[in-house]
Simulated scan of single mutants.
Amino acid sequence: MTDLVDVHAHLAPINAVRLASIQGVEWRPAENVMVLDGHRLGMRALFEPQQLVRWMDQRGVARALVSIPPPLYRQDLPSSQALPWVTYLAEELLAMCAASGGRLGALLHLPMEHPDLIATTLNEFGDAGFEGIALAAGGHPNIDYADACYELMWSWMDDRGSFVFVHPGACRDPRLDRFYLENLVGNPYETGVAAAMLVMKSVPSRYPGIRFCLAHAGGVFTTLVGRLQRGFDTARPGVDLNAEAPMQAARRFYVDGIAHHPALIQMIKDIVGDDHVLFGSDWPFPMGMT
């Protein structure tokens, strides 16, 4: 067994008794299907952590950091329903990973679309045994990574040297409804916007203890950072020239290696650094490396 760690794996924790009391969620064990606000999630491997561990054994992966998949973000919930849902996810994902004999580590999902709930979630679960934090890159109009409402969260993460995995939520552009573009284009776009906002607000340089890791090889951020730098160099309107230069800030990010083209991987290594490209599988989704 190697010491390889997968930083990008997904599981959906199932506790049938608890789910029965959660509004908008239904677990159908005979079908291995979870229904979330009317949408079916039927990828069986998401509900069976032992499948992930077997996959890891076959490929020599020692450990995996597990986050919930985007369908479980449920970003349209009001605050009153979002808090019990986030609580369920935290408790059950932690329990699922704890039962793996050390093979799986849980990432705490924070409700970025509800800034008022973040402090409550961190106070309850921030020191509960999670190995990092998972954040939705977008998917809701309230999510703006440059907003001052997140400063206390960044400070908390910086103090603890947190590993923070940034993963796209939904991309609500109706033009992307066809051809699977919601995923193919929308996912990397959402991550790129989140990373650009972090850079332009100097979050990585002001909170250097945070180890930001961007899903899907950084999304479009790694291909657009040169353009961000050009906007910085030419003092485009709205660009804060007191911020850390984008090309320098890019070296602070980690990314997984899910780029789907070897030439792109080499470019990403040139931008973030060879040692900042981490192994990620996107288990069990077909857009990863199943």
Rank of each mutant, 00 (worst) to 15 (best):
G219N: 03
C213V: 11
A215N: 00
T222R: 04
T191L: 00
K201C: 07
E190V: 06
V225I: 13
A215Y: 00
P188C: 09
H216P: 03
V193D: 05
A194G: 09
R227Y: 04
L181M: 13
V185I: 15
R227G: 00
L184G: 09
G231I: 01
T223W: 11
K201L: 04
A195N: 08
M200R: 12
K201F: 09
L228S: 02
M197F: 02
V199R: 04
D177L: 15
I210S: 07
L228R: 01
T222L: 08
S202L: 03
P188I: 09
A194N: 06
D177C: 15
A215Q: 00
C213S: 14
G186K: 05
L228F: 08
G226F: 11
V225D: 04
A195H: 10
R236F: 11
F212S: 11
V185P: 00
R236N: 12
F212H: 10
T234L: 12
F232P: 00
G192Y: 02
I210H: 04
A196W: 09
N183Q: 12
Y207T: 09
L228N: 01
N183M: 14
T234M: 10
C213W: 03
G231Y: 03
L214H: 03
P237S: 15
N187E: 03
D177A: 15
P208T: 08
T222I: 13
D233E: 12
L228H: 01
A215W: 00
Y180I: 08
L228I: 02
T234W: 04
L198D: 11
R230H: 15
M200E: 11
A217I: 09
V185K: 03
R178Q: 13
V185A: 13
K201V: 08
A217H: 02
Q229K: 02
G238D: 07
G231C: 02
K201P: 04
M197P: 06
T222A: 08
R230E: 15
F179I: 05
F232Q: 01
F179M: 06
Q229D: 00
V220Y: 14
Q229A: 06
F221T: 15
V193H: 08
G238L: 01
N187R: 03
K201D: 14
A195Q: 09
G226P: 07
P208L: 06
G219A: 05
L224H: 13
V220I: 15
F221W: 07
R236T: 10
L228A: 01
R178C: 11
V193E: 07
F232H: 10
F212P: 11
D233I: 04
G218R: 03
V199M: 03
F212V: 05
G192W: 02
P204I: 01
E182F: 15
Y180V: 12
T223M: 14
C213T: 13
A195Y: 11
Y180N: 14
F179N: 13
V199L: 04
K201T: 14
L228W: 04
